[in-house]
């Protein structure tokens, strides 16, 4: 199907004999918002790394836009938990950080152009950070830094945006602002995959869910299939901790 963004079939991955993901299956289409919920260590981030080709599956396949990661690279954006682990003394401006992600479009040895700078400004505008473009990245707050990292992912105008706990360690106001930005991107047709500990927020923004219990992948559901009782179970953590 033309609108198919990602197709995961029978995906299995294990770390030294411990199966983290077993037979994961799901498909997403243009404009879907997939929330991945689950306990720590259940495999949420592992799945993101498999999609990004940072890990190799033991079996199964992942198709992105009908092809593999290397060919689909330009259509994929990624936001990690960088605001927490970021080296605040690195001498780089917001503009330099965002521009660094244009490599896939430029290729080796080609310098940046004015057009690239325009793309950077457009991406910063989407996250409301244009006025900070010449500030040192380390001088910003955690929430502002994470907005910059979202802009870095957006500068390539991706069709699929993967976000691994993008709001960890950020104040409530910034979390709200970032979620508004993400919702807006999704409303404009961007497909989003997001892991988050904040289950109520994910239930609010997602139209599809991947649920991991503490022992690994459990099920893939669309929100319309979820009964109120099951939503209440998930919110209570019962779907995340099988033996609770």
């Amino acid at each position: 199907m033309n609108n198919e963004v990602i197709n995961v079939e029978n995906l299995t991955f294990e770390y030294t004999d411990t199966a983290v993901l077993k037979n994961v299956n799901f498909k997403l289409y243009k404009g879907d918002f997939l929330g991945i919920i689950g306990a720590n260590g259940a495999g949420k981030s592992t799945l993101i790394k498999l999609i990004l080709n940072l890990l190799t599956p033991d079996s199964g396949k992942i198709e992105l836009f009908g092809t593999d990661f290397a060919k689909a690279r330009k259509k994929i954006g990624y936001v990690s938990q960088k605001a927490n682990s970021f080296n605040s003394d690195f001498p780089a401006t917001v503009k330099e950080v965002v521009r660094a992600n244009l490599f896939a479009e430029k290729g080796l040895f080609k310098p940046y152009t004015k057009k690239d700078d325009e793309k950077v400004l457009s991406a910063l505008e989407l996250v409301g950070m244009t006025q900070y473009r010449n500030k040192l990245i380390g001088s910003l707050s955690g929430g502002e830094q994470q907005r910059v990292f979202i802009a870095r992912a957006l500068v390539r105008e991706p069709e699929l945006l993967l976000m691994d706990e993008p709001t960890v360690g950020i104040d409530a106001k910034s979390v709200h602002d970032i979620m508004e930005i993400i919702k807006n991107l999704n409303r404009n047709g961007m497909t989003i995959i997001m892991t988050n500990h904040d289950t109520p927020t994910l239930l609010e923004v997602s139209n599809k869910l991947l649920i991991f219990c503490e022992h690994g992948y459990e099920e893939f559901v669309t929100m319309s299939d979820l009964s109120l009782e099951r939503i209440s179970d998930i919110l209570a953590g019962k779907r995340l901790h099988k033996h609770a």
Binding site: L54, K82, L102, K106, L108, Y112
Partner: peptide, 23 residues
Amino acid sequence: FLLYKENFAITFDEEAAALSGIP
């Protein structure tokens, strides 16, 4: 000079640099 932008990307965030296709 030729590797200016690649060096920046790698030193700032090696994982992101690899994801964007930098060798």
